[in-house]
């Protein structure tokens, strides 16, 4: 229930109507949306039980390691009810043709693979918020100062997921494990996304806000 309460509000993409409909406009819209969502996601992390009592340096490492996984998981959850489209925001839905125009066909296909996986499992809101917290605590940064405290945070969320599954899906003892086993694909897709946006940044044609740039650089 803590995790459900901590869930951030909706964000709208609000593409600039003055820009021509090309790849630059699509990527500008996505980077701007991501930057605003990142601010919300940092606020979200601070509301996770135990996160704010971690050392500040470790809070930073976890977010620097998992920010894209958290962003993508939110897109994936929003897209569960859409047909082969990614719902970046209610006002910004992208199909395969639009993703190709934006130069992101592989990323689009990769995220859709996650969507299909979770849709087949019937991913629930409670499971989504728990997985997102596990992904954050699972960032696997090499430079965590207090690994024991981070492990404790992860154990706490993991236990919440197990409790939930025991209560809601007692006939499916493998469900919690199957959900956790989707995290490698999430990590892989997030790595692909970070690489794509790093190369977009190097091209220098798309304006990016500072927080988004800062986190891209942390992964470069």
């Amino acid at each position: 229930s803590h995790l459900l309460e901590a869930e951030p509000e909706k964000v709208y993409a609000m593409p600039d109507p003055a820009l021509p409909d090309d790849d630059i406009k699509a990527l500008t819209t996505l980077c701007d949306l991501a930057d605003r969502e990142l601010v919300l996601n940092i606020g979200w992390a601070k509301h996770l039980p135990g996160f704010s009592s971690l050392r500040l340096a470790d809070q930073m490492r976890l977010l620097q390691g998992a920010w894209m996984e958290v962003l993508l998981l939110r897109v994936v959850f929003r897209s569960l009810g859409a047909q082969d489209r990614l719902v970046f925001a209610e006002d910004y839905v992208m199909d395969a043709a639009q993703a190709r125009l934006a130069g992101l066909p592989d990323l689009h296909a990769g995220v859709l693979q996650l969507v299909r996986k979770y849709r087949a499992m019937g991913l629930e809101m409670e499971e989504f918020v728990t997985l997102k917290a596990i992904a954050l605590a699972n960032a696997d940064s090499m430079h965590i100062e207090d690994a024991e405290a981070v492990q404790k945070l992860q154990d706490c969320v993991h236990e919440a997921l197990q409790d939930y599954e025991r209560a809601r899906h007692p006939g499916d003892p493998r469900r919690a494990g199957r959900l956790i086993m989707t995290l490698p694909l999430l990590r892989q897709t997030a790595t692909m996304a970070v690489r794509s946006f790093c190369s977009i940044r190097q091209d220098g044609r798309v304006p990016m806000h500072k927080l988004f740039l800062e986190l891209l650089e942390a992964n470069a």
């Binding site: 601010v39 940092i42 606020g43 601070k46 500040l56 809070q59 930073m60 977010l63 620097q64 500072k210 927080l211 800062e214 986190l215 650089e217 942390a218």
Partner: peptide, 15 residues
């Protein structure tokens, strides 16, 4: 740390 000043600031804000 200087490189990550926005993240640092957002984490330190009390909201």
């Amino acid at each position: 740390k200087e490189k990550h000043k926005i993240l640092h600031r957002l984490l330190q804000n009390s909201t």
